[in-house]
Design a protein around this nucleic acid. Sequence first.
DNA 1: ATCCAGGGGTCAC
DNA 2: GTGACCCATGGA
Length: 301
Amino acid sequence: MKQYRIPFPPLFSFDECLWFLDRNYDDCLHYIEGGRLWKALDTGTELVLLELHAEKDVLVLDIHGSVAPAAGARMVEEVRDWLGMNDQPEAFYALLRNHPALSYMTEAFYGLRLIGISSLYEALCWSIIGQQINLKFAYALKRRLVERYGRSVEYGGKCLHVFPRPEDLAGTTVEELRAMQFSGRKAEYLLHISTLFASGALSRAQLEALPPGADRVKALTAIRGIGTWTANYALMKCLREPGAVPYGDVGLLNALLAHGLISDKKDTEGLRRLFEGFPGWESYLVLYLWRSLAVPDFQSR
DNA sequence: ATCCAGGGGTCAC
DNA sequence: GTGACCCATGGA
């Protein structure tokens, strides 16, 4: 086992990270217990188990399994990127603080960071799985997929899975996925995207070569099964694009309605005006609005 | 039973 | 470009 100590950056809360990763949902890609977080990491050549906990203002990372020193330093960077520890949201907090309806968030959600999905393939699959179904069911579907096709690593009684690789899914069939309660359409989308990644026709590097924003959205929405929402969700979670807004997101619209920031769900003008006030921090605004949905009395704010 | 869920494709106009 | 319709299934 190797241990690394990562100091908290300003405006960072590990508790908020844990809260967001948990949210009373059943995410099969990590495990939370007693303030500790476990996650399996695929280095490309091996699987290791990461264990995280906080000691005051330090994030402690334990890596279970044999790891070369250089690999350990790389994993620290992976963790920092995953938990959004490289973001510097001071400017976002300043904007938030000046907003009459949202200023409470700087206290209520203090330190919440955008937790990412470093694999574009996983981000796209997950967003497709989550299309138009409630989150609880979406997490159940993901668990079935991951436990059936993804590899796992075990250490000290903990067994964590990683998301399947494209080639793990490319060989399955629509019928097999339908039997796992995926709709026929989603099964087709997932298989098609798996094929694209497995063949090299689509990759994170390829997408990163395009300028952020409209060009990347256009490249993604050209793929069957990927619409505006899915493309922006993936750009937000994977490439951490500050300007990516999953337009049409039901949760986002509900949060905006609850805060009285739009008049109805078709009020695209009101939505546009609001996001114009948060240039470069649109994705963080989405994140904090999603966060607000879990506050029991958010409607009374 | 009815409506909603972290949408998207297709087709008519 | 907009709107109606379909897809499919669990949750509340």
